[in-house]
């Protein structure tokens, strides 16, 4: 498979602390890669290394199959980025801000109007950025990142500060990029719901380590339903189920069946009835991706 981004044993330490350790990130072409992790997990540090803003303590970064160390400028010609808070020159207008980047990127002037249109800032293009709202500044940052139609777009928390309609617009824009321009997108976020709606691949990072990396479908498979049974005496029911060789967990107010199919559920319930338990409720509970994410990061913290 052709990887646009590939890191090998990527490590960055600040003093004794390892912000990123042995991270192996692989992003195939044309994917929207959701880079997930709680605050302080090392997402931004990783992104800074992908852009050559920071030097890895050890390990390597390869973009488009080229090594970052020796081909930084050549690689960056095809990368657009928005890292953390948007950077801008407040005393300049949106147009002038983009012009400052355009001069360096050497793209035609009409691209400025095009990207301003795309992020819907064309109406305020000649106003100083000082007076913009956070959401508008964020859009300007995204416009600057797309100025040279990069093959790889790296957006660090791109929906920060956007209002709900802004988030939806941004989502539609990001989703259209791979289809229309063949771009590969890397979006980082600490919100799973956001990634869930956009990404085709997910990488979960916690404490500087990649703890999960696969397609979003694979991640959703973890979200299997479980059956909860409420009976008059939960503990006794749980014990008798275990004694009968059926898998179950004891919760605070219910017993959770680890059943693989409907027949197994039926068998367990039938058994409980035969044993004389009063069954109050049998309910299905779906594990949300949110729960999976929390469990994943929790396990990592416990270990």
């Amino acid at each position: 498979m052709e990887y646009i981004v590939e890191t090998k044993h990527l490590t960055k330490s600040f003093g004794k602390e390892k912000a990123v350790s042995n991270l192996e990130m692989k992003i195939p072409k044309g994917e929207i890669y959701g880079f997930l992790g709680p605050n302080g997990a090392g997402k931004t540090t990783t992104i800074r290394m992908l852009l050559g803003l920071m030097r890895p303590t050890s390990g390597s970064v390869q973009l488009f199959g080229k090594d970052m160390k020796n081909n930084r400028i050549e690689i960056l010609k095809n990368v657009g980025s928005l890292v953390e808070n948007p950077s801008y020159y407040p005393h300049l207008t949106a147009k002038e801000n983009l012009e400052a980047s355009r001069k360096i990127l050497n793209v035609p002037k009409k691209r400025i109007d095009e990207v301003l249109q795309q992020v819907r800032l064309h109406g305020v293009a000649n106003k100083k950025v000082k007076g913009y709202s956070l959401g508008m500044k964020q859009r300007l940052g995204i416009a600057a990142a797309m100025l040279h139609q990069p093959e790889l777009l790296i957006l660090d928390e791109p929906t920060n500060g956007l209002d709900p309609s802004g988030i939806i617009e941004m989502r539609q824009l990001i989703q259209s990029l791979p289809k229309e321009y063949g771009m590969t997108v890397l979006i980082s976020s600490h919100l799973l719901s956001e990634i869930d709606q956009m990404a085709t691949r997910v990488g979960v990072v916690s404490k500087g380590k990649m703890i999960f990396q696969d397609s979003i479908e694979t991640m959703r498979k973890f979200a299997q339903a479980s059956i909860q049974v409420k009976v008059n005496d939960n503990e006794a029911a749980w014990r008798s189920l275990l004694a009968n060789g059926q898998k179950a967990d004891l919760g605070e107010e219910s017993v959770t069946l680890q059943a693989e199919d409907d027949e197994q559920v039926a068998a367990s319930i039938r058994y409980l009835v035969q044993q004389g338990f009063s069954i109050y409720r049998v309910q299905e509970e779906k594990r949300s991706l949110e729960n999976i994410f929390l469990e994943m990061t929790k396990e990592e913290q416990a270990g």
Partner: peptide, 12 residues
């Protein structure tokens, strides 16, 4: 002012 160094240095 807005840490534009990072945006500048991320350009080619």
């Amino acid at each position: 002012e807005t840490n534009a160094w990072k945006q500048l240095v991320a350009l080619p």
